[in-house]
């Protein structure tokens, strides 16, 4: 059966962290999971979420694995690293959101430093996608984890000059965030590489929609980016991609609703775990390289999926 494709493009490799525990992603020479016509030297990796303040609105199934550490970002990160074997930690600076905590860059810098010093695995630090606020917060965050080669995001069209420049200045990587749009994703990559950030320091954040909440838009935009990367050898689409899965999945109605409220929907933990695992695996099919996730059981399913499809 002569239906094998040959591709003229390749995904860039990007390395987050330094030394023995650095993690490299990307490098694929075919469409995602098409091991029959290319190679994938680096498998998709999983970053577990840590928040800078105790989350108040998580459903029970998501709280349970972290119940003893939710109010301590350092202990939380160590639990993800040591017990749940995360490949990376993604520290979310949720408390800087102007409409909730509104903490400043100076407020959160010590937390970023403490977490980055405590863990051995690579660090991702994410703001709240409020362009103005992130422009104030993220340079402080980037400074606080200087020397760790972290991934700093999200970089928006409105603040790339500040946030991507901070990533560059403090020797990190940057995650440009585009609103489910191929052209804006490319444009933002052009802008931040023109600032001086090497393309190997760029990870695309295409915006993540959870299962049932826009997954299909995200899936198709990622698929289009991957097709452009592989078949058109379009350089500005050839970066690895990151998806913020945990925070999107665990606010979905079908995930948060307890079984007692909707008996027809079945066990809440099973439902939530599978909601997250199916979101993650669908986005791997579309080209995701870094999956930021929440529930350890969903992580385990996603890992088994990757092993079965790429092993």
């Amino acid at each position: 059966m002569e239906v094998k494709e040959t591709y003229n493009g390749k995904i860039r490799e990007a390395t987050i962290g330094l030394g023995d525990t650095a993690v490299t992603v990307g490098g694929e020479t075919s469409l995602p999971l098409y091991m029959f016509e290319g190679t994938a030297p680096n498998k998709p990796v999983i970053a577990l979420e840590v928040y800078d303040t105790k989350p108040e609105d998580w459903p029970e199934a998501a709280v349970a694995p972290y119940a003893d550490v939710l109010d301590d970002p350092v202990k939380w990160a160590l639990k993800c690293q040591d017990e749940y074997k995360a490949d990376m930690i993604c520290l979310n600076l949720a408390s800087t959101n102007p409409s909730t905590g509104d903490r400043t860059g100076a407020d959160i810098a010590p937390i970023v430093k403490a977490v980055s010093d405590a863990i051995k695995i690579p660090l991702i630090v994410y703001g709240t996608a409020n362009a103005d606020k992130d422009a104030e917060v993220m340079p402080k965050a980037a400074e606080a984890c200087q020397g760790k080669r972290a991934l700093i995001g999200p970089v928006e069209e409105e603040n790339y000059k500040t946030v991507a420049a901070a990533a560059l200045g403090f020797d990190h990587l940057a995650a440009p965030h585009s609103p489910i749009d191929v052209n804006i994703a490319k444009q933002l990559n052009i802008l931040i590489t023109q600032l001086g950030l090497a393309p190997e320091r760029v990870i695309i954040d295409p915006t993540t929609g959870a299962l049932g909440y826009g997954l299909e838009y995200c899936y198709s935009v990622m698929e289009r980016l991957r097709l452009a990367a592989m078949t058109q050898n379009d350089s500005m689409t050839q970066m690895p991609m990151i998806n913020q899965i945990g925070r999107e999945v665990w606010k979905a109605k079908e995930v948060k609703t307890p079984e007692a409220d909707e008996p027809a929907w079945g066990d809440a933990e099973t439902r939530g775990v599978l909601w997250e695992a199916l979101t993650a695996t669908a986005l791997i099919m579309a080209g995701s390289n870094i999956l930021v996730m929440r529930h350890p059981k969903a992580v385990e399913l996603t890992r088994q999926f990757v092993a079965a499809l790429t092993g």
């Binding site: 997954l215 079908e254 079945g266 439902r271 199916l278």
Partner: peptide, 14 residues
């Protein structure tokens, strides 16, 4: 149900 519902929604999305 807890496994069927997410699969049905995935199908609806795709």
């Amino acid at each position: 149900a807890a496994r069927a519902l997410p699969l049905y929604v995935l199908r609806q999305n795709i």
